[in-house]
Simulated scan of single mutants.
Amino acid sequence: MIPLTLTATLRSPMHLGATNTAGNFLASLSYLPGRSLLGAVAWAWIDAGGDPGAPEFAHRFVSGAVSWGDLHPVPVKEETGAAVDGEPLVVPRTIKVCKLSGLRHGLVDVLLTTPPPEACPLCGVGLDRLEGVLVGDHDGRWLSPELHRQHRAHVSIAFDTGTARSGDLYSRDVLEEGQVFRGQIHCSDEPTAKAILDELPRLRLAVGGARSRGFGQIEVQVKRATASTLEVLREQSERVAQSPADVWYFTLTAVSPWCVRETDGSHARSLTPRRLARVLGVEEANARIVRGDARSESRSGWDGAAGLPTELRHVIVAGSTFLCAVRGLDGPTLQARLLRLSGRGIGEHRAEGLGRVAVNHPLHFISAEANRDE
């Protein structure tokens, strides 16, 4: 797996349809899904003269050799207004913050602590789950991005007359231009990685809805993931704990939605010992989910090429996290398999960025003191 870091800057407002739309209000997602990015790049590649029937097209966009990850918002520096350099990290569902002071009182993880804390260790106020993403800065602090949104009012147009449709007023939730989003593309081979590095910044990309109105124009920059990013993957896979009974403990976190099929064809609602054993190559009796926090939901979308809705998928949402235990493997073998899992992912539709896995997510190991205001 060859990771590339993609940074996208909005050059016009962007609307990405969300499922919580109600009435005449069209809500927008707060991130750019990998599926939308994949579709935008594929269409731009065709518009630039690429042949959709060529093997190269299938290799990049269909085969799974390239995984187009979600792009998440990046916070800006207070001094300059420029985007910070770090990679956005999806926050595990077991990370909580003080209800009163938020990040100023640091992060509290309730997955690895027994019994789990119920109040802020600094002030005693209750805890709230922290959702979204965090980005680390050079000072070792974790920053939460702030999205800038607008509500744009529109009138529907009757296509038969070309005039406003009577009584059909609606508003659209849009993300303001100028904001920066970042994520990773995973390539299976070096030639594909080189081609994406060379070609992607030159493509004219448009993402989301209302593109005919000029919405969704993005400018992208692609670079190889830093050596530190690769080292973190390796260190996280090695950061496992062994008990006297030769049981290895580690955490797995969904950093993008997981679409996992059970043996009967249904969608899994959570990570099961059977699936854990399968991805690590051990007997089911040697794999255990100690505890975790997971949520699942149904999702659908629109296939622009087919002009049809996509299949209804039931996914394990990003941020779901699990404390796992495995026996029957030596340390180096387990570390190698966890590293492979973090690169390949889990479940279906990995070309669209689904199935991304973080092994021993760093936020599990940060104490409340690490992020506290002095």
Rank of each mutant, 00 (worst) to 15 (best):
L4G: 02
T7E: 14
T9E: 12
H15G: 02
H15E: 04
A27S: 15
Y31V: 01
L32C: 12
R35V: 04
A42Q: 04
G49V: 10
D51T: 08
A58N: 11
R60K: 10
A65Q: 11
V66T: 10
V66D: 01
G69K: 05
G69Q: 04
V76I: 14
V84T: 10
T94Q: 08
L103K: 07
R104K: 15
R104D: 14
V108D: 01
T114L: 15
E118S: 15
A119Q: 14
P121Y: 08
G126K: 12
V133S: 02
G136V: 02
D137F: 08
L143D: 00
E146S: 14
H148M: 11
H151K: 11
A153K: 10
I157S: 04
F159E: 13
T161Y: 08
G167W: 07
E176R: 14
V180R: 04
I185A: 02
I185P: 00
D189C: 13
E190C: 00
V207M: 03
A210K: 05
G214V: 07
V220A: 05
R224K: 13
T226S: 15
T226P: 07
A227V: 10
T229Y: 15
R234I: 02
E235F: 06
P244V: 09
L252E: 01
S256T: 14
A268C: 07
L271I: 07
T272F: 09
T272A: 08
L276K: 05
V279G: 02
E284V: 15
A285R: 15
E297I: 06
S298V: 13
D303V: 03
G307C: 05
G307H: 03
L323V: 03
A325E: 12
V326Q: 01
R327N: 08
G328Q: 06
D330H: 14
D330L: 11
L334F: 08
R337N: 05
L338D: 01
L338W: 06
R340E: 14
S342Y: 03
G345K: 07
E352I: 03
R356E: 10
I366A: 14
I366D: 03
A368N: 02
E369I: 10
R372A: 11
